[in-house]
Simulated scan of single mutants.
Amino acid sequence: MQKTKKIRGHKRRLKQIEYWKQFHLSTNLNEILYKWQDHYAKIRIYPWNGFTTGNSHVPEPRGKTREAMLNGLFDIYENWKMQLDKMGEPYYLKIWLYEPNFSKSEVVCAIRDKLHKYDNTFLEAENNAVLKTEPYGSARFKIEAMEWEHNIEEEHHTNFVGEPGDYASLDDFNASRQFLKQMLKKPHRTTIYEEPIGDITEFYSFKRGNVWIGGD
């Protein structure tokens, strides 16, 4: 069983958030996009940086910490928008707001050959849910000033398990096969490849939450 890690040092976290925000505000998009044609600003604040140690679960940021992160995303969005407008060409610029996995939220932009790269990143939600702004404190006013599309965050697995010889031990092989078997007992959707990739003929998508795509 995973333990929930207690988050301490909130003043220090707020300083880290400010540093993270200023780093992205100083980004020269023209230079980066000329080379890569897309860019993003993920929330990279310890301990919400995607890395955990031991058997522990990091709770999602709340209160002033979450509010500061979201305000940071909006500030980055506005700064990048000004830079992109000056470039004078079509662009993709959105905030991806995850719920309940807020710490995965980010600002994403793209131009030219990658302009439509993110059009089908997520499964579009079929309901008419509305983004609730109350939990976000003062940042809710910025949320309400944007248009938001409701999408689904999913975790994907393929049907490929392999052969016993592909694993360090038979126990590892059986554990991988059992894991997939247990996963498929959960609600999911199945996509079948028109052309198999080796032994991969289909993949399974499991809902993990919502993603709200926001922009002007």
Results as ranks from 00 to 15, higher is better:
I152V: 09
D172C: 08
G162F: 04
F141K: 08
E144N: 08
E155Q: 15
I143P: 00
L131A: 05
S169M: 12
E155A: 10
E126A: 06
N151Y: 06
T133C: 14
F160G: 04
Y167Q: 03
N127Y: 09
E154G: 02
N174F: 14
S169F: 05
G137A: 04
N159W: 00
E154Q: 13
Y136H: 04
H157F: 15
N159M: 07
S138P: 05
F173W: 06
T158E: 04
E126R: 11
P135F: 13
S169Y: 07
K132L: 05
G137P: 01
D166K: 10
H150A: 08
A145T: 06
F141R: 14
D172K: 07
Q178L: 10
E163N: 13
E144A: 13
T158K: 04
R140Y: 03
Y167P: 01
Q178W: 09
H150D: 09
N127H: 06
Y167K: 03
H150T: 05
L170P: 13
G165K: 03
S176E: 03
A129S: 14
H150G: 02
K132W: 09
L131T: 02
H150P: 02
A168D: 15
F160M: 11
S138Q: 15
A175K: 13
K142Q: 11
A139W: 00
A168N: 11
E153M: 14
A168P: 11
Y136D: 01
E163G: 06
E144C: 15
D172V: 04
L131D: 00
S169E: 12
G165Q: 11
G137R: 02
H156W: 15
G162R: 04
Q178N: 11
N159Q: 11
A129I: 08
E153W: 02
E147Q: 13
S176D: 07
S176Y: 07
E155G: 10
Q178H: 13
W148A: 00
Q178T: 08
K142Y: 05
S169P: 03
T133A: 09
L131Y: 12
E163W: 08
I143H: 00
E153H: 12
E154R: 05
E144V: 09
P164I: 03
K132M: 15
G162N: 03
Q178I: 11
G165V: 03
N174W: 11
S138E: 13
A175N: 08
S138H: 13
S138C: 10
L170I: 14
E155Y: 13
R177L: 14
D171G: 11
N127T: 12
Y136K: 01
W148N: 00
Y136C: 01
Y136M: 08
N174L: 04
F173E: 01
K132N: 11
R140I: 03
E134G: 13
K132Q: 11
R140S: 04
D166Y: 10
D172S: 01
E149W: 09
E126I: 15
E147P: 08
E154F: 07
N159T: 09
V161W: 02
M146V: 05
E163I: 07
N174R: 11
A145N: 14
E134N: 09
L131R: 01
S138W: 10
K132C: 10
K142G: 06
D172G: 05
E134Q: 12
S169Q: 05
L131M: 10
L170T: 11
A168Q: 10
Y167A: 06
S169C: 09
I143V: 12
W148G: 00
V161H: 02
A129R: 12
A168G: 15
I143D: 04
Y167C: 04
T158V: 02
F141T: 08
H150Q: 06
